[in-house]
Design a protein around this nucleic acid. Structure first.
Lengths: 208, 208
DNA sequence: TAGATTGTTAATCGATTAACAATC
DNA sequence: TAGATTGTTAATCGATTAACAATC
């Protein structure tokens, strides 16, 4: 079933999931692609096409059962399987992400926090101790994390990345400016480039 | 010059800007679209097409002067004009963003921080006092911010958004799950959906 | 001038939208 | 059964890539 689904489709799935959760919370039990398209500001054909990449979850004449579809999308996104994850860089951003994000509802389990600053080591955040980056090797060999979150500068990311890929890390949630995909094409990367996003907004505000 | 540039093109511009800055730092003074394409992992035609949406910045037989191009892209992105900006929600995330982001190099100037929690009001972060959300109206009428950063939950965002749009805010850097564009199609929005990004990564890790 | 590389037009590829037969 | 809405194929639209004449 998981053939070559296009990136555009995959990127829309979490948004479907959010809206379906919202509808469920509102007590809605079924919805047609047309109704959903109006709520989400999309085209109904697109919704049906997107869903049919993964299977026929609807019923002719009826539409989609919201709870069924919700669960199916959760399965598609793989958020029912928690992937062990470490976070590198416990500055303001790393700390905020550790405290702010509900990892377990999104398919991840945060199991290790790391920072190179000795003054931070030992501090406990969200029940996890901050460890020294010098212990990453040991920790990874024991706990085999699949994913890593990079909240460190570009220069530091280059070395840490190389280390982590060697240790078997397969996915990166990347807040640094280091372009992981260029050097490691087989690794999965999601970039969170704050600066790029801000500059895009700047462009739009200056070209209204 | 700022005709109807496609979203795909605009979204690539900050990345060009980053790489050009890097090259400049390395002391490189000129580059051809082919060389740049190899460094960035793009197609050379695409680079030339992208740039030519905004003007002819290169020279046949020579390529592009890095510093000229850098400055041109900065102008295109409008990051030379600082747009007054307020941030709503000084929890972990809001605080981290305030401290972590270099706004002035990206076209924005953070001029006000707000939170509804009275215990936070008065605290100073990065030389700015946290103000009560009840004073937003007054503050905006005096300082006319063009942009707002939303670091508050979905429910709170709905009301704050309505208020801010009425007060003339034209752009939102949105960390909440509220879908601003649906209700305010004329307002410029850049969404930073941590959860969506994580779930996309989850999908990729479960479908390798 | 010859060589290199742009700017730009044309060809290809992929994604979105429309249409409709299948079917609940 | 008639009405509604899916799943899916076909048509359209837009974005990417290739090609090449213009020109530095």
């Amino acid at each position: 079933m998981s053939n070559i689904i296009s990136d555009s489709v995959i990127k829309r799935m979490p948004r479907y999931y959010r809206f379906l959760n919202e509808l469920k919370k509102q007590g809605v039990t079924r919805i047609s692609s047309r109704e959903l398209s109006e709520i989400m500001g999309l085209n109904a054909s697109q919704i049906r096409q997107d869903l049919n990449c993964f299977g026929g979850f609807g019923q002719q004449g009826y539409g989609y059962n919201i709870d069924v579809l919700r669960v199916e999308i959760a399965k598609i996104l793989g958020i029912d399987r928690l992937k062990n994850t470490i976070l590198i860089g416990m500055g303001n951003l790393g700390k905020a992400i550790t405290l702010h994000i509900n990892f377990e509802s999104k398919g991840f389990k945060l199991i290790g926090l790391f920072d190179s600053k000795e003054s931070l080591v030992g501090q406990v955040v969200k029940n996890l101790p901050i460890r020294s980056t010098s212990t990453i090797d040991e920790f990874c060999r024991e706990n085999l994390p699949e994913a890593a979150i990079l909240c460190i500068p570009k220069a530091a990311s280059e070395d840490i990345c190389e280390q982590l890929v060697k240790l078997g890390v397969k996915g990166f949630w990347n807040f640094s400016h280091y372009d992981i995909a260029l050097k490691y094409p087989d690794v999965k990367v999601e970039n969170m480039h704050f600066g790029d996003s801000l500059m895009t907004l700047s462009y739009r505000l200056d070209n209204m």
